[in-house]
């Protein structure tokens, strides 16, 4: 294990300092340990994909990055997670502001039962990001544009968001996250509830968002990881087995377990 983590640490390819850094992260659900000494750097303005078999802890890890695990009872966390070199688990950090800087998109599209407009305006409103109705309109429009949804919804902003198709709902959720202007966007299997065409659209969107945001995506589809990410981390049984450039992981994995998983021998 020590060898692997050492490799993971030294394997960082990006020249500049990482946007987020995780060191020796242990996580427990009550008594049982779900993550073991995870070390991972997340490079700025890149897509980092987390892959691994079901139950390997990749979603749990993702939720550590914006402290979503705080909402679950009985979770204890040891180790360090930093955003721009500041520990996000520090007492001085306001978790509410942290989550505004690190947005999240979930597995199942979860639009609020409100209008399309109100869904996107939700974040800016609660954080007081805008001072006037015009500004809010502007933020909503640009967010929807960034999420590639503007053409489909611009005539139906007042309609309930639950009336959109699954793929549209998921892009609306991305627009909703973008509207808060986060620095990092976490995506937990964002395409697993979508059909192939909607998936292609979301993947395209992720690729475009990369120029402005740091993205971490959990995915079950190895093709998706290969298509959208620059770096890939492979989790197995709560441990980070291997991390590296996506090309390298998929063509020349160093660890036997990674090789076995990506060639479909287990998982």
């Amino acid at each position: 294990m020590a060898v692997v983590t050492a490799r993971a640490m030294t394997d960082g390819t990006s020249a500049q300092a990482p946007k987020m850094a995780v060191r020796k992260l242990d996580l427990f659900y009550g008594e049982s340990q779900a993550l073991y000494e995870v070390d991972l750097d997340i490079a700025e303005k890149q897509v980092t994909a987390l892959i691994g078999p079901s139950g390997c802890g990749k979603s749990t890890f993702l939720r550590c990055l914006n402290r979503m695990n705080d909402t679950i009872d009985g979770v204890t966390i040891k180790g360090n997670v930093t955003l721009d070199d500041r520990d996000i688990y520090d007492k001085a950090i306001d978790v509410v502001q942290l989550r505004a800087r690190i947005g999240m998109v979930f597995q199942k599209p979860n639009p609020f039962p409100k209008s399309i407009y109100d869904n996107v305006a939700y974040g800016p409103r609660i954080h007081g990001l805008v001072n006037s109705r015009d500004e809010l309109d502007e933020v909503v429009m640009t967010s929807l544009e960034k999420a590639g949804l503007i053409k489909e919804v611009k005539d139906r902003m007042a309609e309930p968001a639950t009336g959109l198709s699954g793929g549209q709902q998921q892009r609306l959720c991305i627009a909703r996250a973008v509207a808060v202007s986060p620095e990092v966007i976490l995506m937990d299997e964002p395409c697993s509830a979508l059909d192939p065409i909607a998936t292609a659209k979301v993947e395209e969107l992720i690729d475009e968002l990369r120029s402005n945001y740091t993205i971490v995506i959990v995915t079950h589809s190895m093709q998706q990881a290969a298509r959208v990410s620059q770096r890939t981390a492979f989790f197995h049984l709560g441990k980070l087995v291997e991390v590296g450039d996506t090309d390298q992981i998929f063509t020349n994995p160093k660890d036997e377990r990674t090789k076995g998983y990506i060639t479909g021998r287990f998982g």
Partner: peptide
């Protein structure tokens, strides 16, 4: 999922 969505936006 709706609660998560809201917390995830920093509410």
């Amino acid at each position: 999922s709706l609660r998560d969505g809201s917390y995830g936006l920093g509410a």
